[in-house]
Amino acid sequence: MTTASAIHPRKLGRTGPAVFPIALGCMGMSGMYGPADEPESLATIHAAIDAGVTILDTGDFYGMGHNEMLLSQALRFFREKVLISVKFGAQRGPDGAWLGYDARPAAVKTALAYSLKRLGVDHIDIYRPARLDPKVPIEDTIGSIAEMIQAGYVRHIGLSEVGPETIRRAAAVHPIVDLQIEYSLISRSPESRIFPALKELGIAVTAYGVLSRGLLSGSSNSGPGDIRNRFPRFAAENQAQNQKLVARLAEIATRRDITQSQLAIAWALAKEPSIIPVIGARTRTQLNESLAALEVSLTSEEVAAIEAAVPADAIAGTRYDTHQMQILDSEK
Rank of each mutant, 00 (worst) to 15 (best):
C26H: 05
A170P: 03
G100C: 05
D50E: 15
Q150F: 00
A197E: 05
F77D: 15
N242V: 07
A293S: 15
Y114N: 12
V121F: 11
I194C: 08
R213I: 05
S115G: 10
W98F: 14
L99T: 07
V82E: 12
E331N: 07
H123T: 04
A90W: 01
S274M: 08
A4K: 03
K135F: 11
G202E: 07
Y320F: 15
G59Q: 07
A292W: 01
H46C: 04
A235M: 10
L216K: 12
G16W: 11
H46E: 11
V205Y: 00
D313C: 04
E38C: 06
G16R: 14
A236D: 10
V82K: 05
L12G: 02
H174D: 08
A36H: 10
A172G: 13
M64A: 14
L112T: 09
L12C: 12
R131F: 10
A281W: 04
E237V: 14
F78Y: 13
H323T: 14
L198N: 09
G223S: 08
G214K: 11
R282M: 12
A74Y: 09
D37Y: 01
G163T: 02
A90K: 14
A171Q: 04
E147W: 04
L179S: 02
N229T: 15
V310W: 03
E80S: 15
R155K: 15
R155E: 14
D321I: 09
I149K: 15
G225D: 15
K244H: 00
L198R: 09
G120P: 06
K11D: 00
V310S: 05
W98A: 14
A264N: 08
